[in-house]
Design a protein around this nucleic acid. Structure first.
Lengths: 228, 228
DNA sequence: ACCTGAACACCGTTCAAGT
DNA sequence: ACCTGAACACCGTTCAAGT
């Protein structure tokens, strides 16, 4: 718990053969992220938690990014899609909420979105579920792709901004930001935003945006019915 | 160009007194980012470009994050808001396009959004411009805040996903991603997305999403007129 | 006041060696 | 096949010293 800075115990210096399995590494990585945040996930710290030398990890993963991808995949596979509901639109709402909280709770996924050189399982699964809902509503594929893209981009934006929750409700931070604005007189209407207390939580704004997009989805569905 | 690994020139080893000004550091940082990407912006490389020892930078900026913030502010102040137009909605469209390209061209801003513990000039300025447009359309402040938030979150999402442009048009990457999906049969409708060639560019999807949100803005404006 | 070298505590990773 | 110590080329930053 306290002593031995470098070597764990002089007695059992070398870890036995089967100590390390990819799943254990991924599990330890997720624990580390949950406890101290993504930026504290480090090969060194990860190895220390597994009571193993840093280099051992490289037997199981090519590099750190591979570990990160495995983490993301694991997090996604643990996630269960909401149950089927009476209304397709209600189902879609649930999926979107679940998507938001998945991204907010696991910033790794967001980071992978930003880095992403390749489609990863997260988005493919969700895109599919969303697209499937729209399809079942009778919306044609082209419009379906457009609408699901809009929804996905909107959640990503929401998730990226979500952590500001803490200071966004503090009007002082807005004032400080306003003071830093270069040409102050050019931007007058922001005062309307900051005058009263900002009354909208991140969750409220998410729901509001969802309704905005859903309004267009309803229109699309109506016109799909009309064409038929 | 080639030789002298450590010292620039044995003759003029120490830089004269007035060599360094904050603006120069910011300028050099922007050049570095433009040339080799954000991840290659390093105190060491920045100092080398300025022909100065790394530690000199700390006379002018508290730490690297302060430099990054100054970079973001500089980038934003160079940006000019689109000209006023006949239609407020057309103005709004222009602002949104400008916002997207600002974020796509300068990923630092996106990164600051993600890190952001405080409101920064970028968003305040844009939020204001967007909110101002909605206000001029006669939309009430509450709805205005909601709609501008939706718009902002949507652009951020678009910008984050935009770099995928390259591989997104390659159907093979989708297939590879699909193969990695854990419970394959649960997600059938993605095939609809991947069967034909994916016909939508990032720009097209951005415009489509914009129209979806604009549809709701039009409704809000209409009802604002009706109430009056 | 401004610039700097040496040093520190970290990174991720390669390589050759152990078992 | 799996684990490892030493070493490498980097990070950002502190500190005491130069001018």
């Amino acid at each position: 718990m306290s002593s031995s800075p470098t070597k764990p115990t002089p007695g059992r210096s070398r870890a036995p053969r089967g100590t390390l399995k990819p799943d254990m590494i991924v599990k330890a990585a997720i624990e580390l992220i949950d406890e101290d945040g993504l930026e504290s996930l480090t090969i060194g710290r990860l190895a220390k938690r597994l009571r193993v030398a840093p280099m051992s990890l490289y037997t199981h993963f090519r590099d750190k990014e591979a570990i990160l991808l495995a983490v993301a995949t694991e997090l996604f596979s643990h996630f269960e899609m909401p149950e089927d509901d009476s209304s397709d639109l209600e189902m879609l709402r649930k999926i979107m909420r679940a998507y938001l909280h998945l991204l907010v709770d696991n910033p790794v996924l967001l980071k992978l979105y930003a880095a992403g050189r390749e489609a990863n399982p997260i988005e493919v699964g969700f895109d599919d579920a969303i697209f499937g809902c729209l399809e079942r509503m009778g919306i044609d594929p082209r419009t379906g792709v457009e609408l699901s893209s809009t929804l996905v981009r909107f959640v990503i934006g929401c998730a990226l901004v979500y952590p500001r929750k803490e200071w966004e409700e503090d009007p002082r931070s807005w004032n400080r930001a306003r003071r830093r604005l270069p040409p102050t007189e050019t931007y007058p209407s922001i005062r309307e935003l900051t005058r009263g207390e900002v009354p909208f939580s991140q969750d409220h704004l998410f729901e509001a945006g969802l309704e905005t997009i859903f309004a267009d989805i309803r229109t699309a569905r109506r016109s799909a019915r009309g064409d038929h």
